[in-house]
Structure formats: structure tokens, C-alpha cells
Design a protein around this nucleic acid. Structure first.
Ligand SMILES: [Zn+2]
Ligand SMILES: [Zn+2]
Ligand SMILES: [Zn+2]
Ligand SMILES: [Zn+2]
Lengths: 132, 132
DNA sequence: TTTGTTGTGTTATGCTATAACGTGTGCCAT
DNA sequence: ATGGCACACGTTATAGCATAACACAACAAA
């Protein structure tokens, strides 16, 4: 794992401090005091952080979260990961399901489809918000 | 199934004629000759078509496809559906996997998460493009 | 020193989506 | 019939997300 640059560190910090996913523009606003002036500064940092697996992009939200892959997973590291996203409070749960992952890659293999990246996002209400 | 309005029919027609998913703005351009002038005309039609299950939104693409649910599915109609999207030619395969669907809803139930909509999208290369 | 790579900053632009307001039409209860 | 309502439609403006293009600085390898 290579060292983070200053901008990458700032962006990752902002995501880690947040309870909910952040859009690139929200990150930009949070970092204006640290010298950020343009969206590209954020997007460039995000691009690298995602490559490193430290951040995930939530496609259904156009937003980003710090990886919550607590290291206690069954597999050594990120294969396909899934997210449950609360529409009410914004809270995100990241999880891995071996069965789902294999089932999808079996389907792909069967079709000759060369899998590059898989998105799994469940939108709904978390237990807390569903109760309320 | 209620009758489609003129705009809904035009939008659905554009999607059906297309090999690849279309963004709302591409649809708009295709329909200018039919009197479309503003994005909202497209978005409003898409909203209804998606409600009716005739169109799907591809979250990782910010684009839309006509439903390819050929009626020959195991379940009577749409539960959770998955897509394989070719990054090279844009071709989309829509499919349903019972095991994946149940596995995810079991996870949700276990967490008390109330599932509303689930997105599953595999990006990669279709067999044709992978061979080339 | 030269060269290539990587991170950075800035400006401008393009793409995606919705807010707010107004119009017209069909339908139904009064 | 007439008022009221629901709904599709149309228009303008604006908000939100993402990248192109260019320039510069730091640093390491050749
Ligand atoms: Zn992760
Ligand atoms: Zn919640
Ligand atoms: Zn479908
Ligand atoms: Zn292809």
C-alpha cells in the first residue's frame, strides 16, 4: 500500500468522518478551507482511492463512501461487494456474500461475459428507520 | 395494463428500437422531430414507464433500456432483475437469478432492512467483444 | 541535465436531473 | 351545465454531477 497524497488523505478523511455517503461536490465544500477550489481535485483523489479499494462509488446515488470492509471478511479482500442504503437516513451497510458473488460469476462464465466490475445496491429502509 | 400516452409511447418506441441503452438526453434528441423540446418531457415519460415495468434504469450508466423480460421467466413478473452491460458495444443482457434474489432478501430480512429496490449490474465485455 | 511520470491547480464546458409555474383536457359529483 | 379535480403536457430556469484541456511543480530515473 502506497502512501496517500495530501489531497487523497483529505478526501478520505472527509468520507471517514461522514455517517452517510458524500457526493463529490459536498466533499469539495467540506474541503474548501483546506485549499480545495475545483471539482477535479476531488474527482482525481477519488479515482485513486477507488483504485486502491479505500473508497467505493455508489452508483445509484452518485456518491462515495469510505470502505467499511472491516478486514474480518471470509475472503482475503474485495471481490464483489454489496451495499444496503437507507433512503431515509442515508446510512450504508457494506457486505459481502460469497454465494451471490459466485452465482453471478457463474452466470457470466456461462454466457462468455468477461466480468470487470459488479454493482449490487439495495435501496430501502434500515431497521431503525423502518421501525420509526 | 393501462394505455400509454403519446409521449410515453414515443419514448418506449425509441428505447425498443435501440440496441444499446439511451440517456434521457439522447432520447430527447431522437424525438425532437416529434415535438419534444425539453428534458422533462422525456423524464416524465420514463418515470411512468419505469413504474409500469416497461423500462429499466441502469444506474451505473445513467441510462435507460426497454425491458427485455421476455415473459418466459420463472417468476410471474419482475422481482429483482440483473443486467450485464458490455463496456465496448453497449449491449445489455437482462436476466433474473432466483438464488441471488433470495440470498439478498434473506440478508435484508436478517438485518431488519426493508428492501425497496435492488440494483444488480455487471459491467464487462460481452462474449463477442471479449473475443475480438 | 534531460526526460518522463505523477500530482496539482485553473478555467471552461458538457451531461444529468429537477423545480416552479402555467395550460389544456377529460371526467365526475354536485 | 358547472365547478372541481386529476393528470398529461409544455416551457423556462436552475441545480447537481463529471470531464476536457491546458499549465505548472516536484521528483526520480536515465
Ligand atoms: Zn469495501
Ligand atoms: Zn435509516
Ligand atoms: Zn425487465
Ligand atoms: Zn460487446
Amino acid at each position: 500500500m502506497t502512501q496517500l497524497t495530501k489531497n487523497q488523505d483529505l478526501v478520505l478523511g472527509a468520507l471517514k468522518r461522514s455517517e452517510a455517503p458524500l457526493s463529490a461536490y459536498v466533499i469539495l465544500d467540506k474541503l474548501r478551507d483546506h485549499g480545495f477550489r475545483a471539482p477535479l481535485q476531488v474527482y482525481r483523489a477519488l479515482e485513486k482511492l477507488i483504485e486502491m479499494g479505500l473508497v467505493h462509488r455508489l452508483e445509484s446515488l452518485n456518491a462515495f463512501v469510505a470502505c467499511a470492509h472491516s478486514g474480518e471478511s471470509c475472503c482475503s479482500h474485495h471481490g464483489t461487494v454489496a451495499f444496503a442504503i437507507c433512503n431515509a437516513c442515508g446510512h450504508v451497510m457494506e457486505f459481502h456474500d460469497h454465494t451471490v458473488e459466485h452465482r453471478l460469476s457463474d452466470w457470466a462464465r456461462g454466457k462468455g461475459f468477461k466480468q470487470e466490475k459488479t454493482t449490487i445496491e439495495i435501496r430501502g429502509l434500515c431497521a431503525t428507520c423502518a421501525a420509526a
